[in-house]
Simulated scan of single mutants.
Amino acid sequence: MIHGIKSIKDAVKSVYALNAPAQLFAIYVKPLSAGKVQEKIKEDIVNTFKDNLYAEKIDVSFEVLKDVSGQEKESSPAQFRMTLSKPLKKEVIEEALTSAGYPNMLEQGLESGMEYQTVKIAFNSQQNEEAIKSTIKNAFEMPNPLKRVVSIGATVAGEMKSRAILAVIFSCIATIFYVWFRFGDFKFGSAAIIAVIHDILITLGAVAVADYLFGNMKIDSAMVAAFLTVIGYSLNDTIVIFDRIRENMGVRGNVLTPQLVNDSINQTLSRTILTGITTIGVLCALFFLGGPEIHGFAFVMLVGIIVGTYSTIFIACPMLLKWKGLDSASQALPRQNFPIQRRREVAKNT
């Protein structure tokens, strides 16, 4: 029944007979992509309110094309350079010219989907030039009520959620390999990723609680960017402490002990606290003074920075000890009462 209708056939996912002999059918249609859903919503709204929409005026100017000698071209048709006050897609320009009664006036070779502010047009030089220009100018009064989509349906939200999850997964995988290469041990990368997963889950839970209590805390593209920023901040803080641990391990015979980890944390604690307090102060200003548009972004960043600061100390480092404790060469040494010295200081004393 739908085999010969290509546009419908491509959209249909499956067809099932509901009775025998088959008189009723259940047709499952493939879900639309985010872009198609947005375009469909916009088209339906514009068609419903087309008689009451604000028409945006696009200013149009014309310039006669001249040859290298500076003389106007004598050949027919006459050619003009049409300049718009704002860039428009090729399809929008063609639609405006078609509505004005000149469907084949636009130059050839323009790419579909690209925006152009200056294009070439051509029409018969024997026609009334001023009347054509006036008609074209009137055609560029077009309704454009939807500047951007702020809230969209479940299909687009599901697509955004899938992309956000993939972004987090790929960033975690890339981080594991980077830390593995940087420190020469897979366990460093694993401990850092466990801390990052903790940060993401706690922050995501805080967003859910805030949305339940106060509302208007929906996950959007800005909030996804905030989650990825939290991942980067937490990893940066973790790598600073891990780098100090590796540096101190070189002084202690390349053996990891709880005392060495504790001393390394104390050596970087002032940096961790000062950086965290400074960042939290800026985020508090964004959250309370930045307006509702960036509340979600500032809230995720604020919670993520707080959680990421303590997870570096209380989750990443203990997990590193747990991983390294699986090796027989990583048994704890007796507690030492002298502070760890840098390699250059030890070399100087010897």
Rank of each mutant, 00 (worst) to 15 (best):
residue 122 A to W: 07
residue 124 N to L: 12
residue 201 L to P: 01
residue 91 E to C: 09
residue 327 D to M: 15
residue 63 E to M: 12
residue 219 I to Q: 02
residue 79 Q to D: 06
residue 281 G to D: 07
residue 62 F to L: 03
residue 272 T to F: 00
residue 208 A to G: 05
residue 200 I to P: 01
residue 168 V to E: 12
residue 285 A to L: 14
residue 108 Q to I: 09
residue 177 F to H: 11
residue 61 S to R: 11
residue 248 N to R: 04
residue 67 D to G: 05
residue 140 F to D: 00
residue 119 V to T: 11
residue 135 T to A: 15
residue 42 K to Q: 14
residue 242 F to D: 00
residue 32 L to K: 14
residue 134 S to D: 15
residue 148 R to M: 11
residue 23 Q to G: 12
residue 77 P to T: 05
residue 108 Q to H: 14
residue 130 E to F: 10
residue 268 T to E: 03
residue 103 P to M: 04
residue 110 L to W: 02
residue 168 V to F: 12
residue 326 L to N: 15
residue 245 I to C: 01
residue 29 V to C: 06
residue 37 V to L: 07
residue 302 L to C: 03
residue 311 S to M: 04
residue 334 P to M: 11
residue 20 A to D: 15
residue 268 T to H: 02
residue 257 T to M: 01
residue 63 E to A: 10
residue 251 V to P: 00
residue 246 R to H: 05
residue 72 E to V: 12
residue 169 I to P: 02
residue 252 R to W: 08
residue 77 P to L: 08
residue 139 A to P: 02
residue 137 K to F: 04
residue 72 E to P: 04
residue 39 E to F: 10
residue 220 D to A: 03
residue 27 I to D: 07
residue 190 S to T: 14
residue 301 M to P: 01
residue 293 E to G: 08
residue 323 W to S: 05
residue 79 Q to A: 11
residue 143 P to M: 05
residue 15 V to P: 03
residue 278 T to N: 04
residue 330 S to Y: 05
residue 232 G to T: 10
residue 85 S to G: 03
residue 51 D to N: 09
residue 154 A to C: 05
residue 93 I to C: 02
residue 60 V to F: 07
residue 192 A to H: 02
residue 272 T to S: 07
residue 72 E to Q: 13
residue 133 K to H: 15
residue 14 S to L: 10
residue 349 N to F: 13
residue 236 N to H: 12
residue 343 R to L: 14
residue 73 K to S: 09
residue 12 V to E: 07
residue 273 I to M: 12
residue 77 P to G: 04
residue 195 A to K: 01
residue 82 M to D: 00
residue 159 E to W: 00
residue 341 Q to L: 14
residue 111 E to C: 06
residue 326 L to D: 11
residue 20 A to N: 14
residue 211 D to W: 03
residue 282 V to Y: 03
residue 331 Q to W: 08
residue 34 A to Q: 08
residue 167 A to F: 05
residue 172 C to G: 08
residue 192 A to P: 01
residue 296 G to W: 00
residue 47 N to F: 13
residue 21 P to M: 04
residue 52 N to L: 09
residue 2 I to R: 06
residue 228 L to V: 10
residue 47 N to H: 08
residue 236 N to Q: 13
residue 242 F to G: 00
residue 266 N to V: 15
